[in-house]
Amino acid sequence: MHYKKLVEEYAQAMQGVTNDTKQEPLSGTVVAAIKYDKGVIMAGDTRVTLGHQIFSEDMEKVFAINNNVLLGMAGAVAAMQPAIELFQMEVDYFERKRRKRVKLSFKGQAKVLAHLIAQLCGSLPDGLQAQPILADQHTIYFFDTVGSRIPLKHTVIGIGAPHSAPYVQLDWREGLTQAEALKKILTVLKLSQYNTSVGPGKVIYTIEEEVKKLSEINQKGEAQ
């Protein structure tokens, strides 16, 4: 497909950048997704950093793709943004080619994203320095940085994950209510914020029949 050329171009452009800055991916992020009885809840922080410097406190890292899928991203912004744009284009391209009479299925979308990651990873010397999660109403797909996709019930990615993922894992069960899932996800955001350089969590999305943005989280870390 024609987008492969764009991926190659992007990989070439990124080669110089990653060669000069050979280091571990700087990811001061936490994005969590938890499945509950009727859908999936996903939340993330909004801080952008470079080393110790904070650039922004309001860049959203959870995106609604065509209002039926949620995409969360952790990692280097330079790797994140083109990956999201390419993914969004690939989904739209599929639907437009079919005159918008059908939608690309969730499994199809997960496969497209996995291929995209594998391609970008293969052509970059340090691999893709970003990690996505993709969720619809029933499943959460976890991706690693080389392109494998694993269906899960709950996951936390980013630097906040070691501090907060065990908390989610410990007493997660089938048939969690939305209120319980919300409480859990707020705790994940708080734990990450207390223990690492992750910024305060600001946005929460849920996906049931369609994507819904819950109201903003206040200073105390409570959803309003």
């Binding site: 987008y3 284009m89 005159r99």
Partner: peptide
């Protein structure tokens, strides 16, 4: 229409 979609997608992405 297919050609137009292809042109628009690449322009829109770039």
């Amino acid at each position: 229409i297919d050609t137009a979609i292809e042109l628009a997608s690449t322009t829109g992405l770039s």
